[in-house]
Write a protein that binds this DNA or RNA. Structure first.
Length: 444
RNA sequence: CGGGGCGUAGCGCAGCCCGGUUAGCGCACUAGUCUGGGAGACUAGGGGUCGGAGGUUCAAAUCCUCUCGCCCCGACCA
């Protein structure tokens, strides 16, 4: 992408409403624009990043055996009356009426709808297990939206719903999501820690929040230090290996980890002092097993091996991609701006032309841009007629992992400069060597 | 929902307390000149119903009333 033809509205000053670092950087880097309290447009740079986050989430959901579909955002109140949640959910649910005065709502979550879909089609245990997910907009009329997309009212959620014949099957479904989440957050460059959680209005009795540690996190968390070193399951983990998956979950739940709501001081004090971690955390995922809470009232049953109908055991599993954008920035930035992990960077390489109009510099930039593009590397070519300083500032701010700098100074010796955003390390090399390095580095 | 704060040009702000020229400043924007490795300088420009409504007054960004929006703390929160 040529920056001169892109839409990247950079802000020099921080808008005064933004307090936390990720909100500031997202506004300054031209990723989001606020439209109302808790409601944001994703500008091109924000959308690019979100799409990369979603792609990783999808890969890991699919790998674990979940199947993607897409449900509507507007739901009928009827469904929610079936589960009993229409009255229970409260003011957080945005209720609306259509032109026929039918009661509708903008979905805050989809347990009812997915249960309705399931019961319409699935009649036999032989079609189980089943896990259906989608990535879709939610609306929750929060009392106090804040911190940009960290706690918005309209936000994107990946929500998955599992269906099993019995509790044992459902626990395995739960464990598969548990492992998929560990992998997902790892690939997003985050250290996540599963913590036992309260189940809230979703209901049920088995639940974990996936928390990442960040100074500006909304909740206080306590855990054993060793969690930070636990190895994340590899890509070829066998999701059908019930005992193996359970073993991973057991390991990741073997040490103390809790948010302040679930905190037990005595258990925490039992950890050797050097291994205690008390910090702030951001909830980036939440998984639930809730048995037949919805399948019972809504009549989602299947015939078992004995020929008798039984309510299916369900679980639901959420990740907030829009919140993740903010969480990743909270975890990865410096004074100059965002430092994107390579896997989700909107652009892997920023190509900086330090002297637009100089034939030699323009020529080398054009070759590099063509070469990077041909290699399938997402490249932002800063071809604006700006001074070098302005380009460094902007490209540091938007956080491409690599900056490929082409200026008359080094080009006089036939060299270009490759700079690593995270460390600031610079290396002089020939254009061809830089191309090899980048094409090689970004190969999977 | 309780408490606190803020709405003046795209962004950041001054002016308001104590009413009185044509509402200012920085950045950004437009045209041009000189520039060219960490937000360059100069010259000349454009852009405002001062969040909205009502009121007081000879006169309102400024005082009063109501209202809308936004932010922060708390409570709340798959």
């Amino acid at each position: 992408m040529r920056l001169s033809r892109y839409f990247l509205p950079i802000l020099r000053d921080t808008p005064k409403e933004a307090e936390i670092i990720s909100h500031r950087l997202m506004l300054r880097a031209g990723m989001i624009r606020q439209q109302a309290a808790g409601s944001y447009t994703l500008l091109p740079l924000g959308l690019r990043t979100l799409n990369k986050v979603n792609a990783i989430i999808r890969e890991e959901q699919n790998r674990s055996g979940a199947v993607e579909l897409l449900m509507p955002t507007i739901q009928s109140a009827e469904l929610w009356r079936e589960s009993g949640r229409y009255d229970a959910y409260g003011k957080e649910m945005l209720r609306i009426k259509d032109r026929h005065e039918r009661e509708m709502l903008f979905g805050p979550t989809n347990e009812e709808m997915i249960t309705e879909i399931f019961r319409s089609y699935v009649k036999s245990y032989r079609e189980l297990p089943l896990n259906l997910y989608h990535i879709q907009w939610k609306f929750r009329d929060e009392v106090r939206p804040r911190f940009g997309v960290m706690r918005g009212r309209e936000f994107l959620m990946k929500d998955a719903y599992s269906f099993d014949l019995d509790q044992a099957g459902a626990v395995h479904a739960y464990n598969k999501m548990f492992v998929a989440y560990l992998r997902t957050f790892e690939r997003l460059g985050l250290k996540s820690i599963p913590m036992r959680a309260d189940t809230g209005p979703i209901g049920g009795n088995l639940s974990h929040e996936f928390i990442i540690l960040a100074a500006t996190g909304e909740s206080e968390v306590f855990c054993h230090k060793d969690f930070l070193e636990f190895p994340v399951p590899p890509a070829d983990v066998n999701f059908d290996d019930v005992a193996g998956i359970q073993g991973i979950v057991n390991k990741w739940t073997s040490l103390y980890a809790a948010t302040s709501e679930m905190h037990e001081e005595a258990a925490y004090q039992a950890i050797p002092e050097a291994s205690r971690v008390s910090a702030r955390g951001i909830e980036v995922g939440h998984i639930f097993y809730f048995g037949t809470k919805y399948s019972d009232p809504m009549g989602a049953t299947v015939a078992g091996p004995d020929g008798k109908d039984a309510s299916v055991h369900m679980g639901s599993y959420g990740i907030g991609p829009t919140r993740l954008l903010a969480a990743i920035i909270e975890a990865s930035h410096d004074e100059a701006g965002i430092i994107w992990p390579e896997a989700i960077a909107p652009f892997t390489v920023s190509l900086l032309n330090l002297k637009v109009g100089d034939a030699a510099v323009d020529g080398v930039c054009a070759e590099l841009y063509a070469g990077l593009t041909a290699a399938g590397i997402d490249t932002l070519y800063d071809d604006r007629d700006e001074r070098p300083g302005a380009k460094f500032i902007v490209n540091d701010l938007i956080g491409s992992p690599w900056q490929l700098i082409v200026g008359p100074k080094s080009l006089g010796e036939g060299k270009v400069e490759l700079k690593r955003r995270a460390t600031g390390e610079r290396e002089l090399m020939s254009p061809a060597a830089a191309l090899d390095r980048l094409a090689g580095a970004s190969r999977p």
